[in-house]
Design a protein around this nucleic acid. Structure first.
Lengths: 361, 361
DNA sequence: AAGCTGAAAGAAAGCGCTTGCTGTACGCCT
DNA sequence: AGGCGTACAGCAAGCGCTTTCTTTCAGCTT
């Protein structure tokens, strides 16, 4: 049915080995022969069978990327940039296809997709966000990754905690986001505006990012003498609500915060999506942003600049990170020394934060 | 290096054919033998080589989806739902990996990825949005699709114009969005609010969607006696600005519309992203939405409900469409009769549209 | 003119799997 | 008891390519 190498060879009057060599250009072929072969290829509209090639040459044209959900702009931006980097002019030899796997944050799905990618002998795998910090899961993932690495699959972690393979000294290649620093600067910004009662809506507890951002927030408070041991920090826990990474979590958490009646003048959200929910809840209760309560997010997703008021947030250069992960997984770039590179984050001050309303006590 | 079928066979004391049969479960194997094989598989941690399997069985575990850009929520939602549908419990036999290809709307990229997918002998291909309505391109794409179809690759078009393979009577399986109807109802909504001067910012001219939406808009106007031939429709062209699908296009187009000073009381945008730009431009000029000018979008992307004011728009059930495309491309669902199914759109009335401000003439 | 070199082409052995066909041994029928 | 059908299991032939090793042959050297 389909045209094969042999067909092309027959038409060009050469052996299939020669055709293969013309196609791959890694062996001397006389100019005239090359031309004849190329003509035959064009005439027959021959397209190499990637599976046969992969089997024979023990290579693969696939790169996998594990994301929570590619519909989430956070992951979409990473995946998009990665794909652009990996796909290269696409026809170019070495250009690879990107397999997107939505894990939904489920450890089982993550393992399953890892197996599927191993089955396809993927050339590389990029793991993003979704890490669930359970030791059991980490162990299982590590086992899979160890086998992948052993079989030559390049592995890159992007925005998730560094992982060290058993028996290795350096961790796997990792692009870590500076969540801690970003969160710290964000809270410092609020403090410098004069806020002293700052609510905080966390992300899902099992996500490592959640902890890092919260820690940054606390570091900022501590730096202003509002640490846990201090007077000002006495009811610090009351200002924190545990949420999740979606809009509704922000909405509900905000209602809870208001119910506690702790007098917040600002609320920091786990990320921009949550911040949207926070704003919605505040408006729902008749409070204006930032007139009554300032709101800040994290990630600087595209919609954040267009929200009204525009959201003060912390920018993570997701596209740069995705592109860099792409280069790393293709082996076009050397891994950072020590395996781990930290991606800087940047405070974006916009309209959703302002000094607290002056009120008589 | 890697564990092969033969290794498992040796360990289980059977032939590799038997191992293959146990793995595929498509041939009778005695219970005791099956068990022994399964134990060997587990002990050796065997993972089948997908490429070898694909070559031998002439099957593939890949499904490709061509999108403009997966970072764009419009495509991200489709891709995500598609992936979820196609990936099935993932381990399940028949679960396929989704290859995401960003074409950036470029015809060449589209062709290149189609070739790449043919090379991998993809089991199916879903083409979304990005169609550029140039005849040359259509012809080239058709040629590629014809070959793919001939080799058994299932093809589904999602949100792009139906295409008929040369020599075929029925078009390829297509999920078409009812852009025309949605746009018509949207404009009718504005008309019924009392708007008579309605600006329109189009999408990119080469996109088929652009034409359909604009046609729907015009149909609504015509239905209210405001067609091109009428008095009211005399300067209809002045009310239309040609734009693109991004925020800046909306911003610039709006400024242009205001510059023309045609007295618009409402602006319909090509899509939600554009609408965001429209709102930004209006605010930039000191106009309030919907106080001074009503604004409407299209697509009902997730951020639209959270914009403030919340955006009146036309909902396209992108996730349903993606999931359905997934089922079709997997052959789990029969194609719609006639090949083409139209996906209904729904008017979502929210806060960004209101009756025009009463003004003395 | 014989021998050598090196470039170019071919033969053929796999890569790891599936599957049609060929055994083989058992149970069952008559 | 002899012949058959049935249920498994194995053999071996590919799937379409890459790549090692061999062969061929033109062009030089001495």
């Amino acid at each position: 049915m389909a045209v094969t190498l042999a067909d092309v060879a027959a038409r060009a009057g050469v052996s299939s080995a020669t055709v293969s060599r013309v196609l791959n250009g890694n062996y001397p072929v006389a100019g005239s022969t090359r031309e004849r072969v190329q003509r035959a290829v064009a005439e027959l509209d021959y397209v190499v069978n990637g599976q046969a090639r992969a089997l024979a040459a023990a290579t693969s044209d696939l790169v996998g990327v594990l994301v929570n959900d590619v519909a989430d702009p956070f992951f979409g931006l990473i995946a998009s940039a990665l794909q652009a980097e990996v796909g290269v002019g696409a026809a170019e030899p070495g250009g690879k296809l990107t397999v997107v796997c939505n894990t939904g944050g489920s450890p089982e799905a993550e393992l399953t997709y890892l197996t599927l990618l191993e089955r396809q002998r993927a050339a590389g795998v990029v793991l993003t966000g979704g890490a669930v910090d359970s030791p059991a899961h980490s162990t299982a993932v590590l086992a899979r990754l160890a086998r992948l690495a052993a079989s030559g699959t390049r592995i890159v972690l992007c925005g998730r905690p560094a992982l060290t393979l058993p028996g290795e000294s350096a961790p796997l290649t990792t692009l870590a986001f500076d969540n801690h620093g970003g969160a710290r600067r964000l809270t410092e910004h609020l403090l410098s505006l004069g806020h002293r009662r700052i609510g905080y809506v966390t992300g899902p507890p099992e996500r490592s990012t959640t902890g890092h951002r919260l820690a940054g927030h606390r570091a900022a408070l501590a730096g202003h003498g509002m640490g846990p041991g201090t007077d000002a920090g006495a009811d610090a826990d009351q200002l924190i609500v545990h949420g999740g990474y979606d809009r509704n979590a922000g909405f509900d958490a905000t209602l809870e915060l208001l119910r506690r009646d702790v007098g917040v003048t600002a609320i920091v959200a786990a990320n921009d999506t949550v911040a949207l929910g926070v704003c919605a809840a505040l408006r729902d209760r008749g409070l204006s942003v930032p007139g009554d309560v300032s709101v800040a997010g994290f990630d600087d997703l595209p919609f954040s600049a267009d929200a009204s008021p525009a959201l003060t947030t912390v920018r993570i250069p997701l596209q740069e990170a995705g592109a860099r992960a792409g280069r790393l997984v293709m082996g076009r770039t050397a891994p950072p020394p020590g395996g781990v590179a930290t991606i800087a984050t940047e405070l974006m001050v916009r309209g959703s934060t302002a000094p607290p309303a002056t009120r008589r006590s």
